[in-house]
Design a protein around this nucleic acid. Structure first.
Length: 309
DNA sequence: CAAATACGCGTCATTACCTCA
DNA sequence: AGTGAGGTAATGACGCGTATT
């Protein structure tokens, strides 16, 4: 009868990552029935990540980190709270929607050009793109590293962001080919695509951190509550044990002697303890621990002879 | 085979710009 | 019109894995 919170390494060896992975390994029927394993490591690969082809060095390590997040996300959505399907995308998208089509407002040589949208027929989709002047200016800026002293803030169009978003859903990291393809489609520089994915991953991680924090907070509260309940139960059982022997004679016949059920697992043996039976689930359902058929004196109740005498 | 080096790519922290209330 | 907050593109530093010498 103890609260089990194991802090240890997960089975899958993590390579160069210390991302804490919280894995609810047992989801019970009620909210407070859970076992937490706080481990360091990563879980199995997701289907999505399996599609990735590590074509360049350093991708494997990144894959593992992403895998851990992806796995954790799915666990969270099942056991904790329904993650908004586009939690991390919602803000960006909604903001883009609010802005409408004026997101391409850019400054060219000090002049403001409103909502400049140029459709390129060669693109697979109608993606408003920047004019070549903007690109050239940006490239000049990049090449020279000067750009008139201050770097310009280039706002991606709604369509460009949406396309990048879709691509991010397919793969959160880019191969060089994917990067160049995306850059061509969106008429952006590969560096811009790369930066967008970097920032996108950072935003995802930030959101995930917030979700994790909330989840852990709720878990902590639940465990604290359960811990208090278990302490009360221990006290009740200790009181039972110290009661005079004839007390057991009042127990139902099917309670101790015949059915040989652990008092912790059967409400019938604790009729005098409404605090235990009223709102508490059977202890056996709290944790997925081995349960022996034959009733034995619970370790908690077994008083150590040397300790008392 | 081991060490040194270069390169590419990732994360992370931060800056700078833009938009909006 | 001015301003502060929030979002986000962009930058630089640094670490890690791999290939090459």
């Amino acid at each position: 009868m103890e609260l089990e919170l194991s802090l240890g390494d997960s089975p899958a060896p993590a390579k160069g990552t210390s991302t804490p992975v919280l894995t609810p390994t047992h989801a019970g029927k009620e909210d407070h029935e859970l076992v937490l394993e706080l481990g360091v490591g990563t879980a199995k690969r997701t289907e999505q990540d399996n599609q990735k082809t590590p074509t360049h060095p350093g991708e494997d390590a990144q894959d593992q980190e992403d895998d851990g997040e992806a796995c954790f996300r799915s666990e969270l959505s099942l056991s904790c709270q329904p993650l908004p399907a586009s939690a991390e995308t919602g803000s960006a998208n909604s903001e883009e929607c609010r802005r409408g089509f004026e997101v391409n407002t850019v400054l060219v040589d000090g002049d403001t050009v409103q909502g400049r949208s140029l459709s390129t027929s060669s693109l697979p989709m109608e993606v408003p793109v920047r004019q070549a002047a903007d690109q050239e200016a940006a490239e000049d800026e990049e090449n020279t590293g000067v750009g008139g002293g201050a770097r310009k803030k280039l706002r991606l169009s709604k369509e460009q962001s949406a396309f990048l978003e879709d691509s991010f859903k397919e793969h959160s990291t880019l191969t060089p080919k994917q990067k160049s393809d995306l850059a061509k489609k969106l008429n952006l520089r590969p560096r811009q695509v790369e930066v967008w994915f970097q920032n996108r991953r950072a935003r995802t991680k930030l959101k995930q951190t917030e979700v994790d924090r909330e989840y852990l907070k709720r878990c902590c509260e639940t465990l604290a509550q359960e811990n208090r309940r278990l302490h009360r139960e221990v006290a009740e059982l200790r009181a039972l044990r110290t009661a005079p022997y004839p007390f057991y004679g009042h127990l139902p016949a099917a309670g101790f002697s015949t059915a040989r059920v652990c008092p912790s697992c059967d409400d019938k043996v604790t009729p005098h303890n409404p605090a235990i039976t009223a709102s508490s689930p059977p202890v056996s359902t709290l944790f997925a621990r081995p349960h022996f058929g034959a009733f034995t004196v619970h370790p908690v109740l077994r008083r150590q002879p040397s300790a008392t005498s």
